[in-house]
């Protein structure tokens, strides 16, 4: 699993990012250098070591299932780049 395997164009597609040709070339040069550096972790034997997913593990925090007021729709929709009545307007999703 060598670091130089990274295919920046493909990963950009997974990330829903469109790169310029210049950015793609730059990242294709830089990211293998960063990945080669982080490969130093491979020399550590971590078998039997539990992963840490949070700075301070907290599990199953629950609250009473009671509705609480949300944000006022008008104030939320005030940030909409495009609006149609009380909805966010986006390009057509379903085939006509």
């Amino acid at each position: 699993m060598a670091a130089e395997e990274i295919d920046v164009a493909y990963v950009a597609q997974l990330a829903t990012i469109r790169l310029t040709d210049e950015e793609a070339r730059l990242f294709q040069r830089q990211l293998p250098v960063i990945l080669a550096y982080v490969d130093k972790l491979r020399c550590l034997d971590v078998s039997g070591i539990e992963p840490t997913s949070h700075g301070h593990p907290v599990y199953n925090v629950l609250r009473e299932d009671v509705p609480e007021p949300g944000l006022d729709p008008e104030r939320v929709l005030a940030n909409a780049p495009a609006r149609l009545r009380d909805t966010f307007k986006v390009p057509r999703i379903v085939e006509s």
């Binding site: 982080v38 971590v46 070591i49 539990e50 992963p51 840490t52």
Partner: peptide, 12 residues
Amino acid sequence: AYYTHAQRVRTL
């Protein structure tokens, strides 16, 4: 190889 491994190193 990357993410879970790094989480284990985080434990160390």
